[in-house]
Simulated scan of single mutants.
Amino acid sequence: MKKYIVLVAVFVSVITFANETKPKLEATKDNIVKATYYHENGQVQQQGAFKNGKLHGEWVSYDENGNKIAIAEYNNGAKVGKWFLWNDSSLNEVDYTANKIVAVKNWKKEAVVTN
């Protein structure tokens, strides 16, 4: 009997963990589907939306520890607006217009002014 209880507990935990890594999709009005993707450890990897099957609106990416690593903007699948990309030593800002890079700025961590 104990073997069956242990087997059921393992099975339930495997199913729970597997469900944490599957994308979560939520349909909203105007043909928009909100999407959340997960790292294998269950942390959110990316969140954003699709409109008519194309990337649309703001997309945010996170590392496996939950730290924000990127913010991107799409309009019907085209890259637009300001994108921000973080790493350990800098912040990069990339400006897009009609899916083309028009400017790139880079800030080093040492240059940050704090109060």
Rank of each mutant, 00 (worst) to 15 (best):
K100Y: 08
E64Y: 12
A111P: 01
V102E: 11
E110F: 07
P23D: 02
S13N: 05
N99T: 04
Y62V: 06
K22S: 07
V104D: 12
N52E: 10
N92D: 15
V6A: 12
N87D: 15
T21Y: 09
N41P: 00
A18R: 04
V8D: 01
K54R: 06
V12C: 09
N87V: 07
V14R: 02
K51D: 03
S13P: 03
F11V: 03
S89K: 09
F17D: 06
G42I: 01
V113P: 09
D88V: 08
K24P: 00
N75G: 11
S89T: 09
N106F: 10
T97S: 12
I69S: 03
V8H: 01
E26D: 02
A78V: 13
N75A: 15
I5H: 15
Y37T: 10
T97G: 07
Y37I: 05
I15P: 00
I5F: 15
A18S: 12
V33W: 04
K2S: 11
M1Y: 10
F11N: 02
V8L: 11
N115A: 10
D63K: 02
A98K: 14
I101T: 06
N19F: 07
T36Y: 03
V8P: 02
F50Y: 15
S13R: 01
P23M: 02
A103G: 11
V8F: 08
K2V: 14
Q43Y: 07
N76D: 12
Y96E: 03
N19Y: 06
E64C: 07
K29L: 06
A103W: 07
K82T: 14
T21E: 09
K109I: 12
F84E: 13
K109P: 10
S13E: 01
V80F: 00
E20Y: 04
Q45W: 04
W86A: 04
V14A: 09
W83Y: 02
I71N: 13
D63A: 03
I32L: 04
V44T: 10
F50N: 07
V94Y: 01
N87Q: 08
G42T: 02
H39G: 06
F50Q: 09
Y38T: 04
L91M: 06
D30Q: 03
N99L: 04
N52R: 06
K105A: 12
T28M: 09
N76P: 00
K2Y: 11
F84M: 10
A78F: 14
N106C: 14
V60M: 09
N67V: 12
K2P: 09
A9N: 10
G48H: 02
